[in-house]
Amino acid sequence: MLMIIWGYIYFVLIGLGMNSFINSQSFAKIGMLTILIGAIINIILDPIFIFTLGLGVKGAALATVISQFISAFGTIYFLTGKKTILKLQIKNMFLKKKYVTKIFSLGTAGFMMAITNSIVTIVCNATLQTCCGDLYIVIMTIINSIREVASLPGQGMANACQPVLGYNYGAGEYNRVLQGIKFVTLTSLSMMLILWLSITIFPELFIKIFSHNQEIINNSTSALRLYFFVFFMMAFQMVGQAVAVGLGKAKQAIFFSVFRKVIIVVPLTIILPAYIGINGVFIAEAISNFIGGGACYITMWFTIGRNLKKV
């Protein structure tokens, strides 16, 4: 545990955090490569350390720390090298209030998205433990794992649009910003629709990635379909928040993150099971996707999008 805390976390913060500086300079391939190298090395080292060297869990932790160190080293090496446009230099490491305030403001949006997800997970597990026991906690863990993977394409596109939209917004190219918003909306929505259909039509295929226990599979199928009902609406939430953050409207992104998770999901997760049973826990997420995603995107379009058209 200590190895993961003191080794892995710092290297991940450097590797993933500083990776944004690579991507924002239009070196997307290099940014992807620094992350991919760490993942591949981790995959190679895991069986060697766990089985060949017989280190077990310690081996898995050591492999993870080493792989993330290499990823972090690659990121720093590029950002201090000759190819980068904006080079990391000691003289620029001193903090300035106006930049810290702006970064903190925009970063709070991402933090709130993460912390609200954690709050919902805690509430869901507590509710499931009270009414249904360990079986449904296992099922929810599987569903959350599937959701994390299924969200990545849409979230990746939404995050990728931020530096492009921000650059053009700062340059006064508002028509390009509008085109970028439309493009990333259609792309993210298309990806999420394909994944939603795949999960809805073939739920057992996704569940079996994590477990072949027939009892878990039987109980997970309907729960997965309920949880992922209108999952594609998440694309609107992702794009709406990404555009708000990319154009410096952090308060709007923070509000809709709290609105969807804390104001909608948490109360529904607690209330619905009392009326419709265990299905209420899974339906709560679907309702929040529909209301939260729609409200976030519509608000973004009528505040940010409409103003861009007027300029």
Results as ranks from 00 to 15, higher is better:
residue 278 I to Y: 06
residue 45 L to H: 05
residue 181 I to K: 00
residue 197 L to P: 11
residue 110 G to R: 00
residue 269 T to A: 11
residue 175 N to V: 09
residue 302 F to T: 15
residue 101 T to N: 10
residue 234 M to R: 06
residue 307 N to C: 04
residue 193 L to Q: 00
residue 111 F to K: 00
residue 79 L to V: 11
residue 144 N to Y: 15
residue 168 N to S: 14
residue 124 C to M: 12
residue 296 C to R: 08
residue 245 V to K: 01
residue 171 A to G: 09
residue 20 S to W: 08
residue 90 I to S: 10
residue 8 Y to F: 11
residue 158 A to P: 12
residue 247 L to R: 04
residue 46 D to L: 09
residue 92 N to D: 12
residue 293 G to T: 11
residue 28 A to E: 00
residue 110 G to H: 04
residue 227 Y to R: 05
residue 307 N to G: 12
residue 304 I to R: 02
residue 217 I to Q: 01
residue 244 A to W: 00
residue 164 V to A: 14
residue 197 L to G: 15
residue 242 A to M: 08
residue 287 I to N: 12
residue 48 I to A: 10
residue 303 T to E: 14
residue 223 A to D: 04
residue 8 Y to S: 10
residue 194 I to F: 06
residue 246 G to S: 03
residue 298 I to L: 13
residue 131 C to P: 02
residue 185 T to C: 00
residue 86 L to S: 11
residue 167 Y to R: 15
residue 234 M to P: 07
residue 115 I to C: 05
residue 61 A to V: 12
residue 94 F to T: 15
residue 95 L to D: 13
residue 17 G to Q: 07
residue 78 F to R: 03
residue 202 F to S: 06
residue 64 T to Y: 05
residue 42 N to M: 01
residue 242 A to G: 14
residue 211 S to C: 09
residue 196 W to D: 03
residue 197 L to I: 15
residue 97 K to R: 08
residue 279 N to Y: 06
residue 216 I to Q: 01
residue 123 V to L: 10
residue 62 L to I: 15
residue 250 A to D: 02
residue 12 V to N: 13
residue 6 W to L: 09
residue 27 F to Q: 09
residue 164 V to W: 00
residue 201 I to C: 05
residue 239 V to P: 08
residue 3 M to W: 10
residue 249 K to S: 14
residue 160 A to N: 01
residue 149 V to S: 07
